[in-house]
């Protein structure tokens, strides 16, 4: 996934309005989680970094993924995924968390710092504009590409009319 492609094919820019609800934070964390480790560190390295403490060292573990019988029924255990998480606290007090698939500890650390900076009113707009918006747009573009490539393989049925002669 190329995170340099900022333009969204559909022109849709994800809504990341500056409100401090968990819904917004969930979106921020999800965008970071969906980005590649390289994409996150590329953004991280351009930041003026605050000092912070590690509340929880980057740690890799497992989450058991569940499915549902028949798609909507009772849950069952499908299999595990690797997950890496991290928690940091900025010197200004904000606590940032990261959870994402994979084993990149660097990405977890960087994402947790970015999440903490997003919670700081002074740096929120910057994080949204310089990090979240371009990452989200690139992700959106990649998804849209998959959708359009897939749509081209949709079957158009037509019925052969049998002639009498």
């Amino acid at each position: 996934m190329s995170e340099t492609t900022v333009e969204d094919r559909t022109g849709k820019i994800p809504d990341v309005s500056p409100k401090n609800s968990s819904g917004d934070r969930k979106k921020i964390m999800a965008t970071l989680a969906a980005a590649t480790p390289e994409a996150v560190s590329g953004k991280y390295e351009n930041l003026a970094l605050p000092s912070f403490d590690l509340v929880r060292q980057p740690e890799t573990g497992l989450v058991m993924v569940r499915g549902r019988m028949g798609g909507t029924g009772s849950p069952f255990n499908l299999g595990e995924v690797t997950v890496t998480r991290c928690v940091v606290r900025l010197e200004t007090g904000e606590t940032g968390s990261a959870y994402s698939l994979g084993r990149s500890k660097k990405k977890a650390l960087h994402s947790a710092v970015i999440d903490a900076l997003w919670q700081r009113p002074e740096t929120r707009a910057l994080i949204e504009k310089d990090i979240i918006a371009p990452l989200a747009a690139a992700q959106q573009t990649a998804k849209e590409t998959v959708r359009q490539e897939t749509a081209a393989t949709k079957v158009d049925f037509f019925t052969m009319v049998r002639g009498d002669n």
Binding site: T60, M64, V65, R68, T72
Partner: peptide
């Protein structure tokens, strides 16, 4: 590896469908 826990069940109805 340590086990962090269980996911919420995945929703295949909201899949980004490729096929």
């Amino acid at each position: 590896l340590p086990r962090f826990g269980y996911s919420t069940p995945v929703d295949t109805g909201t899949m980004l469908v490729e096929r």
